[in-house]
Computed example of a mutant assay.
Amino acid sequence: MLVPNPKLVPLTLSDDERRVLEGWTRRRTTAQALALRARIVLTCAETGESNTVVAQRLNLGRQTVATWRARFLRDRLDGLSDEPRPGRPRTITDDQVEQIVVTTLESKPANATHWSTRSLATRVGMSQSAVSRIWRAFGLKPHKIDTFKISKDPLFVDKVRDVVGLYLDPPAKAVVLCVDEKTGIQALDRSAPVLPMLPGVPERQSFDYIRHGTTSLFAALEIATGQVISAVKRRHRHQEFLAFLRTIDRNVPAGLDVHVILDNLSTHKTPAVRTWLLKHPRFHLHFTPTSSSWLNLVERFFAEITVKLLRRGVHRSVTALEKDIRSWIEQWNTNPKPYVWTRTADQILESLAAYCQRINDSGH
Protein backbone atom coordinates (compact mmCIF):
# COMPACT_ATOMS: atom_id res chain seq x y z
CA MET A 1 0.00 0.00 0.00
CA LEU A 2 1.35 3.42 -1.03
CA VAL A 3 1.88 5.96 1.74
CA PRO A 4 1.42 9.55 0.53
CA ASN A 5 4.23 12.02 1.09
CA PRO A 6 3.04 14.27 3.96
CA LYS A 7 4.77 17.30 2.41
CA LEU A 8 2.73 17.10 -0.78
CA VAL A 9 -0.77 18.41 -1.28
CA PRO A 10 -2.85 15.34 -2.20
CA LEU A 11 -3.68 15.20 -5.93
CA THR A 12 -6.99 13.42 -6.39
CA LEU A 13 -8.76 13.06 -9.75
CA SER A 14 -12.45 12.81 -10.44
CA ASP A 15 -13.62 10.18 -12.92
CA ASP A 16 -14.23 12.85 -15.56
CA GLU A 17 -10.77 14.37 -15.07
CA ARG A 18 -9.09 10.98 -15.31
CA ARG A 19 -11.01 10.15 -18.50
CA VAL A 20 -10.00 13.46 -20.10
CA LEU A 21 -6.35 13.13 -19.10
CA GLU A 22 -6.12 9.56 -20.38
CA GLY A 23 -7.72 10.68 -23.63
CA TRP A 24 -5.09 13.40 -24.05
CA THR A 25 -2.29 10.85 -23.64
CA ARG A 26 -3.76 8.48 -26.25
CA ARG A 27 -5.15 10.76 -29.00
CA ARG A 28 -2.92 11.27 -32.01
CA THR A 29 -4.11 14.83 -32.46
CA THR A 30 -3.14 15.93 -28.96
CA ALA A 31 -0.17 18.29 -28.84
CA GLN A 32 2.91 16.56 -27.43
CA ALA A 33 3.31 19.16 -24.70
CA LEU A 34 -0.27 18.68 -23.49
CA ALA A 35 0.06 14.88 -23.57
CA LEU A 36 3.20 15.09 -21.43
CA ARG A 37 1.49 17.31 -18.86
CA ALA A 38 -1.41 14.86 -18.70
CA ARG A 39 1.01 11.98 -18.03
CA ILE A 40 2.65 13.99 -15.23
CA VAL A 41 -0.67 14.60 -13.50
CA LEU A 42 -1.81 10.97 -13.92
CA THR A 43 1.47 9.65 -12.51
CA CYS A 44 1.30 12.03 -9.55
CA ALA A 45 -2.27 10.96 -8.78
CA GLU A 46 -1.61 7.23 -9.17
CA THR A 47 1.61 7.02 -7.15
CA GLY A 48 1.34 9.82 -4.62
CA GLU A 49 5.12 10.05 -4.83
CA SER A 50 7.29 13.14 -4.59
CA ASN A 51 8.08 15.36 -7.53
CA THR A 52 11.61 13.95 -7.59
CA VAL A 53 10.44 10.35 -7.90
CA VAL A 54 7.85 11.19 -10.54
CA ALA A 55 10.49 13.12 -12.47
CA GLN A 56 12.76 10.06 -12.39
CA ARG A 57 9.94 7.80 -13.55
CA LEU A 58 9.17 10.04 -16.54
CA ASN A 59 12.77 11.04 -17.22
CA LEU A 60 11.97 14.72 -16.68
CA GLY A 61 13.31 17.56 -14.58
CA ARG A 62 11.95 17.90 -11.05
CA GLN A 63 10.93 21.52 -11.65
CA THR A 64 8.83 20.48 -14.68
CA VAL A 65 6.85 18.01 -12.56
CA ALA A 66 6.46 20.54 -9.74
CA THR A 67 5.20 23.23 -12.12
CA TRP A 68 2.44 21.14 -13.72
CA ARG A 69 1.39 19.52 -10.44
CA ALA A 70 0.93 23.00 -8.95
CA ARG A 71 -0.86 24.31 -12.04
CA PHE A 72 -3.31 21.39 -11.96
CA LEU A 73 -3.99 21.75 -8.24
CA ARG A 74 -4.71 25.46 -8.77
CA ASP A 75 -6.71 25.43 -12.02
CA ARG A 76 -7.46 21.73 -12.62
CA LEU A 77 -7.65 20.80 -16.34
CA ASP A 78 -7.54 24.43 -17.46
CA GLY A 79 -4.17 24.78 -15.76
CA LEU A 80 -2.52 22.42 -18.24
CA SER A 81 -3.05 24.78 -21.17
CA ASP A 82 -0.42 27.34 -22.05
CA GLU A 83 -0.87 30.65 -20.28
CA PRO A 84 -1.01 33.82 -22.35
CA ARG A 85 2.49 35.20 -22.74
CA PRO A 86 3.20 38.77 -21.73
CA GLY A 87 3.77 41.23 -24.54
CA ARG A 88 2.26 44.00 -26.59
CA PRO A 89 -1.52 43.66 -27.01
CA ARG A 90 -2.68 42.65 -30.46
CA THR A 91 -3.49 45.66 -32.65
CA ILE A 92 -4.73 43.95 -35.84
CA THR A 93 -8.17 42.40 -35.61
CA ASP A 94 -9.44 39.26 -37.35
CA ASP A 95 -11.65 41.44 -39.53
CA GLN A 96 -8.64 43.41 -40.74
CA VAL A 97 -6.76 40.22 -41.55
CA GLU A 98 -9.77 38.94 -43.47
CA GLN A 99 -10.00 42.23 -45.36
CA ILE A 100 -6.37 41.99 -46.48
CA VAL A 101 -6.70 38.35 -47.58
CA VAL A 102 -9.97 38.90 -49.44
CA THR A 103 -8.73 42.08 -51.13
CA THR A 104 -5.55 40.33 -52.25
CA LEU A 105 -7.40 37.34 -53.68
CA GLU A 106 -10.49 38.95 -55.15
CA SER A 107 -9.46 42.36 -56.48
CA LYS A 108 -6.74 44.23 -58.35
CA PRO A 109 -5.48 47.79 -58.05
CA ALA A 110 -6.66 50.26 -60.68
CA ASN A 111 -3.21 50.86 -62.14
CA ALA A 112 -1.51 47.43 -61.90
CA THR A 113 -2.04 43.73 -62.52
CA HIS A 114 -1.44 42.80 -58.88
CA TRP A 115 -1.10 44.26 -55.41
CA SER A 116 2.18 45.19 -53.78
CA THR A 117 2.55 45.48 -50.02
CA ARG A 118 2.72 49.28 -50.34
CA SER A 119 -0.31 49.67 -52.60
CA LEU A 120 -2.44 47.34 -50.49
CA ALA A 121 -1.32 49.01 -47.26
CA THR A 122 -2.43 52.35 -48.69
CA ARG A 123 -5.75 50.83 -49.77
CA VAL A 124 -6.63 49.30 -46.37
CA GLY A 125 -4.97 51.93 -44.18
CA MET A 126 -2.41 49.67 -42.53
CA SER A 127 1.38 49.52 -42.44
CA GLN A 128 3.36 47.81 -45.17
CA SER A 129 5.02 45.50 -42.65
CA ALA A 130 1.61 44.35 -41.36
CA VAL A 131 0.46 43.47 -44.89
CA SER A 132 3.74 41.65 -45.49
CA ARG A 133 3.35 39.58 -42.30
CA ILE A 134 -0.20 38.59 -43.20
CA TRP A 135 0.82 37.62 -46.73
CA ARG A 136 3.58 35.41 -45.35
CA ALA A 137 1.21 33.81 -42.85
CA PHE A 138 -1.27 32.88 -45.61
CA GLY A 139 1.32 32.08 -48.30
CA LEU A 140 0.18 34.90 -50.59
CA LYS A 141 2.68 36.00 -53.29
CA PRO A 142 0.91 38.29 -55.78
CA HIS A 143 4.22 39.20 -57.47
CA LYS A 144 4.78 35.60 -58.62
CA ILE A 145 3.09 33.76 -61.47
CA ASP A 146 3.40 30.20 -62.74
CA THR A 147 2.60 29.07 -66.26
CA PHE A 148 0.87 25.88 -67.31
CA LYS A 149 -0.59 24.19 -70.37
CA ILE A 150 -3.05 21.32 -70.37
CA SER A 151 -2.47 18.73 -73.08
CA LYS A 152 -5.38 18.18 -75.48
CA ASP A 153 -3.98 14.88 -76.73
CA PRO A 154 -6.91 12.42 -77.01
CA LEU A 155 -4.51 9.60 -76.05
CA PHE A 156 -3.06 11.50 -73.12
CA VAL A 157 -3.86 8.87 -70.46
CA ASP A 158 -2.56 5.97 -72.54
CA LYS A 159 0.68 7.79 -73.39
CA VAL A 160 1.31 8.78 -69.77
CA ARG A 161 0.88 5.19 -68.64
CA ASP A 162 3.13 3.96 -71.46
CA VAL A 163 6.00 6.37 -70.76
CA VAL A 164 5.83 6.19 -66.96
CA GLY A 165 5.65 2.40 -67.20
CA LEU A 166 8.99 2.43 -69.03
CA TYR A 167 10.51 4.59 -66.29
CA LEU A 168 9.26 2.54 -63.35
CA ASP A 169 9.38 -0.95 -64.86
CA PRO A 170 11.72 -1.03 -67.89
CA PRO A 171 11.57 -4.17 -70.04
CA ALA A 172 14.21 -6.87 -69.75
CA LYS A 173 16.98 -7.14 -72.34
CA ALA A 174 16.37 -3.60 -73.50
CA VAL A 175 17.58 -0.05 -73.02
CA VAL A 176 15.21 2.87 -72.53
CA LEU A 177 16.39 6.13 -74.08
CA CYS A 178 14.88 9.60 -73.73
CA VAL A 179 15.56 11.39 -77.01
CA ASP A 180 15.11 15.00 -78.10
CA GLU A 181 16.79 17.89 -79.88
CA LYS A 182 17.84 21.15 -78.29
CA THR A 183 17.66 23.45 -81.28
CA GLY A 184 18.80 27.00 -81.89
CA ILE A 185 21.75 26.99 -79.48
CA GLN A 186 23.45 30.31 -80.16
CA ALA A 187 27.17 30.93 -80.27
CA LEU A 188 27.27 34.25 -78.42
CA ASP A 189 30.26 36.49 -77.87
CA ARG A 190 30.05 39.45 -75.52
CA SER A 191 30.80 42.91 -76.87
CA ALA A 192 33.38 43.44 -74.12
CA PRO A 193 35.61 41.09 -72.13
CA VAL A 194 33.99 39.27 -69.23
CA LEU A 195 35.09 40.73 -65.89
CA PRO A 196 35.96 37.98 -63.39
CA MET A 197 34.35 37.57 -59.98
CA LEU A 198 35.99 39.42 -57.09
CA PRO A 199 35.26 39.40 -53.34
CA GLY A 200 31.91 41.16 -53.01
CA VAL A 201 31.54 41.56 -56.78
CA PRO A 202 29.92 38.93 -59.08
CA GLU A 203 31.23 38.07 -62.52
CA ARG A 204 30.08 40.72 -64.98
CA GLN A 205 29.17 40.43 -68.65
CA SER A 206 28.12 43.15 -71.05
CA PHE A 207 24.38 43.07 -71.67
CA ASP A 208 24.82 43.14 -75.46
CA TYR A 209 26.37 40.37 -77.50
CA ILE A 210 27.41 39.31 -80.99
CA ARG A 211 25.73 36.31 -82.65
CA HIS A 212 27.95 33.88 -84.55
CA GLY A 213 25.33 31.34 -85.64
CA THR A 214 23.44 28.42 -84.14
CA THR A 215 23.69 24.67 -83.77
CA SER A 216 21.47 21.85 -82.50
CA LEU A 217 22.17 19.16 -79.92
CA PHE A 218 20.66 15.68 -80.39
CA ALA A 219 20.73 13.69 -77.17
CA ALA A 220 19.62 10.24 -76.01
CA LEU A 221 19.63 9.83 -72.23
CA GLU A 222 19.74 6.24 -70.96
CA ILE A 223 17.45 6.19 -67.93
CA ALA A 224 19.21 3.31 -66.17
CA THR A 225 22.73 4.75 -66.16
CA GLY A 226 22.47 8.44 -67.05
CA GLN A 227 24.83 7.93 -70.01
CA VAL A 228 24.16 10.24 -72.96
CA ILE A 229 24.56 9.46 -76.64
CA SER A 230 24.85 12.76 -78.47
CA ALA A 231 25.45 14.45 -81.79
CA VAL A 232 25.82 18.11 -82.68
CA LYS A 233 24.43 19.18 -86.04
CA ARG A 234 23.88 22.49 -87.81
CA ARG A 235 20.36 21.55 -88.95
CA HIS A 236 17.51 19.54 -87.44
CA ARG A 237 15.60 18.00 -90.32
CA HIS A 238 14.41 14.40 -90.55
CA GLN A 239 17.72 13.58 -92.26
CA GLU A 240 19.63 14.63 -89.12
CA PHE A 241 17.20 12.69 -86.94
CA LEU A 242 17.71 9.58 -89.07
CA ALA A 243 21.47 9.99 -88.79
CA PHE A 244 21.10 10.21 -85.00
CA LEU A 245 19.01 7.01 -84.93
CA ARG A 246 21.87 5.31 -86.77
CA THR A 247 24.27 6.68 -84.14
CA ILE A 248 22.10 5.17 -81.41
CA ASP A 249 21.98 1.88 -83.31
CA ARG A 250 25.78 1.74 -83.42
CA ASN A 251 26.17 2.55 -79.72
CA VAL A 252 23.60 0.11 -78.28
CA PRO A 253 24.68 -3.57 -78.15
CA ALA A 254 23.05 -5.65 -80.88
CA GLY A 255 21.33 -8.05 -78.50
CA LEU A 256 19.19 -5.37 -76.84
CA ASP A 257 15.87 -3.84 -77.85
CA VAL A 258 15.79 -0.04 -77.94
CA HIS A 259 12.79 1.80 -76.49
CA VAL A 260 12.89 5.47 -77.46
CA ILE A 261 10.80 8.10 -75.64
CA LEU A 262 10.40 11.25 -77.74
CA ASP A 263 7.99 14.05 -78.56
CA ASN A 264 5.64 14.57 -81.51
CA LEU A 265 7.93 16.68 -83.71
CA SER A 266 7.09 16.18 -87.38
CA THR A 267 10.67 15.14 -88.19
CA HIS A 268 10.17 12.09 -85.95
CA LYS A 269 7.30 10.75 -88.05
CA THR A 270 8.28 11.19 -91.68
CA PRO A 271 7.94 8.30 -94.18
CA ALA A 272 11.74 7.96 -94.29
CA VAL A 273 11.86 7.50 -90.51
CA ARG A 274 9.02 4.96 -90.58
CA THR A 275 10.76 3.03 -93.35
CA TRP A 276 14.00 2.94 -91.36
CA LEU A 277 12.16 1.69 -88.29
CA LEU A 278 10.60 -1.15 -90.27
CA LYS A 279 14.10 -2.26 -91.22
CA HIS A 280 15.24 -2.05 -87.59
CA PRO A 281 12.55 -3.88 -85.61
CA ARG A 282 14.45 -3.67 -82.32
CA PHE A 283 13.59 0.06 -82.17
CA HIS A 284 10.28 0.93 -80.46
CA LEU A 285 9.12 4.56 -80.38
CA HIS A 286 7.00 5.85 -77.47
CA PHE A 287 5.59 9.33 -78.00
CA THR A 288 4.83 11.67 -75.11
CA PRO A 289 1.46 13.45 -75.18
CA THR A 290 1.38 16.77 -77.00
CA SER A 291 2.42 19.75 -74.83
CA SER A 292 3.93 17.37 -72.28
CA SER A 293 7.69 17.72 -72.62
CA TRP A 294 7.93 17.40 -68.82
CA LEU A 295 7.42 13.64 -69.30
CA ASN A 296 10.71 13.33 -71.18
CA LEU A 297 13.66 13.03 -68.79
CA VAL A 298 16.13 14.28 -71.40
CA GLU A 299 14.66 17.75 -70.81
CA ARG A 300 16.21 17.58 -67.35
CA PHE A 301 19.57 16.90 -68.96
CA PHE A 302 19.08 19.87 -71.31
CA ALA A 303 18.38 22.07 -68.29
CA GLU A 304 21.63 20.85 -66.73
CA ILE A 305 23.81 21.68 -69.72
CA THR A 306 22.05 25.03 -70.14
CA VAL A 307 22.79 26.12 -66.57
CA LYS A 308 26.32 24.76 -66.39
CA LEU A 309 27.59 25.60 -69.88
CA LEU A 310 25.38 27.46 -72.31
CA ARG A 311 23.76 30.28 -70.34
CA ARG A 312 27.01 32.01 -69.39
CA GLY A 313 29.19 30.60 -72.15
CA VAL A 314 31.13 32.91 -74.47
CA HIS A 315 31.86 31.54 -77.97
CA ARG A 316 33.31 33.33 -80.97
CA SER A 317 32.22 30.67 -83.47
CA VAL A 318 29.78 27.80 -83.86
CA THR A 319 32.74 25.46 -84.09
CA ALA A 320 33.96 26.57 -80.66
CA LEU A 321 30.46 26.16 -79.23
CA GLU A 322 30.13 22.65 -80.63
CA LYS A 323 33.55 21.70 -79.29
CA ASP A 324 32.56 22.84 -75.79
CA ILE A 325 29.27 20.94 -75.97
CA ARG A 326 31.03 17.71 -76.98
CA SER A 327 33.65 18.18 -74.27
CA TRP A 328 31.01 18.83 -71.61
CA ILE A 329 29.01 15.70 -72.52
CA GLU A 330 32.19 13.62 -72.64
CA GLN A 331 32.97 14.77 -69.10
CA TRP A 332 29.38 14.05 -68.06
CA ASN A 333 29.68 10.46 -69.30
CA THR A 334 32.74 9.82 -67.12
CA ASN A 335 30.50 10.06 -64.04
CA PRO A 336 26.86 10.04 -65.19
CA LYS A 337 24.02 10.49 -62.75
CA PRO A 338 20.65 9.04 -63.78
CA TYR A 339 17.49 10.99 -63.04
CA VAL A 340 15.16 8.80 -60.98
CA TRP A 341 11.44 8.96 -61.80
CA THR A 342 9.31 8.32 -58.70
CA ARG A 343 5.67 9.20 -59.43
CA THR A 344 3.30 6.58 -60.77
CA ALA A 345 0.95 7.18 -63.67
CA ASP A 346 -2.04 7.11 -61.29
CA GLN A 347 -0.46 9.78 -59.07
CA ILE A 348 0.20 12.01 -62.08
CA LEU A 349 -3.32 11.62 -63.45
CA GLU A 350 -4.90 12.24 -60.04
CA SER A 351 -2.79 15.38 -59.59
CA LEU A 352 -3.75 16.69 -63.03
CA ALA A 353 -7.41 15.90 -62.41
CA ALA A 354 -7.31 17.86 -59.15
CA TYR A 355 -5.59 20.77 -60.92
CA CYS A 356 -8.18 20.79 -63.70
CA GLN A 357 -10.90 20.81 -61.05
CA ARG A 358 -9.30 23.85 -59.42
CA ILE A 359 -9.24 25.61 -62.79
CA ASN A 360 -12.91 24.85 -63.39
CA ASP A 361 -13.83 26.06 -59.91
CA SER A 362 -11.82 29.29 -60.16
CA GLY A 363 -14.60 31.19 -61.91
CA HIS A 364 -12.42 32.25 -64.88
Rank of each mutant, 00 (worst) to 15 (best):
G61C: 12
V314R: 14
G61T: 07
W115E: 13
V201A: 04
T147G: 12
L36W: 02
T29G: 12
S129E: 13
S206E: 14
T288E: 00
T104P: 02
D324W: 01
P171G: 03
E203F: 01
L195W: 06
R26Q: 15
R74A: 13
Q96N: 11
Y355A: 15
T103A: 10
A272L: 10
P289H: 12
L349G: 00
T344H: 10
K337Q: 15
K173F: 01
L262T: 05
V41L: 08
C178V: 07
Q63A: 13
F72P: 01
V258T: 11
S119M: 00
I261W: 06
S266H: 09
N59G: 14
V97Q: 12
T25Q: 08
F287Q: 07
A38S: 13
V53D: 13
R118T: 14
E17F: 04
N360H: 15
A31G: 04
L242Y: 04
R39K: 10
R358P: 01
Q56D: 14
I40A: 01
P289N: 11
L13C: 08
R211Q: 03
C356N: 14
T104I: 02
S151Y: 01
Q227L: 06
G125V: 11
N333K: 12
L36M: 12
R133D: 13
W328G: 06
V228K: 02
L265H: 13
P170M: 02
D15F: 03
L188Q: 13
P84F: 05
P89M: 05
F207G: 03
I305Q: 01
P196F: 07
Q128G: 04
W135T: 08
R123D: 08
I145T: 01
V232N: 06
V157E: 15
T342G: 11
V102E: 14
V314G: 07
R74Q: 14
T64W: 06
P171N: 09
P253W: 12
L245K: 01
L60N: 13
V9K: 12
E299T: 04
A192I: 02
I359D: 03
T30W: 05
A320W: 00
L277I: 13
R211D: 06
L309E: 12
S81T: 12
P170D: 09
Q99W: 11
F156R: 14
W341H: 10
H284N: 05
T122C: 08
I305A: 01
Q186G: 08
Q227M: 07
E181A: 08
A121E: 10
E181L: 01
W68R: 05
I261R: 02
